[in-house]
Amino acid sequence: MIRSKVKAAILAGAFVATGLTLVAGTPASAQDCGYGGCPPITTTTTSGGGSTTIPDDIPTITVVRGETIDVDGQGCAPGAEVTVTWDDGTVLGTFTADENGNFSTKITIPSNATLGVHLVTATCGDVEQFINVNVLAETVNNVDDGTLARTGSNNTGPLIGIGAAAVVLGGAFLYGARRPRQA
């Protein structure tokens, strides 16, 4: 039934790494939008005879080999064991969720990881949560693919608001600092 799919997706929680919020994967193709929002579109991949549903819109972070990153997530059972694995099956760490089902820890990118995008999976019971990790070489120099780098801000809105506030306050200071005209 469709509605049970939605329920499953909502309960699945999220996995966060270095400030990025990730979507959860569940063994269901949650497609329906309710008044509470739309669950992510998912695709199913099959390996080793098993079927795993992976969200299409997993965020990607960029790291270098051997780098340590902070990860945290939620939606596990309280005290559940959380296993974080590399996409070749290497276990990056095993942790315990807290009494609210949240977990937070550090993982280290394997020093022998191949360059490119890898899928990192956090598993606790039936809940799987994902993050894409784009592994770069240790140093990147003189990269030029012919396009201009994007130079800008992704939080322009708040800055505009703060700027407007600053203008008003600055104007008030100027006004207040004027010497009143003598009669």
């Binding site: 322009t156 809105g157 708040p158 505009i160 608001g161 703060i162 407007a164 506030a165 600053a166 008003v168 306050l169 104007g171 008030a172 200071f173 006004y175 207040g176 600092a177 004027r178 009143p180």
Partner: peptide, 25 residues
């Protein structure tokens, strides 16, 4: 001291705050 400055600055705070949270939208 500097009464005019202080009054002007404090009186401007509500507008500054209102703009900070409103202008982006």
């Amino acid at each position: 001291a500097r009464a005019r400055l202080v009054r002007a600055a404090v009186a401007a705070v509500p507008l500054a705050v209102a703009l900070a949270v409103s202008v982006p939208g």
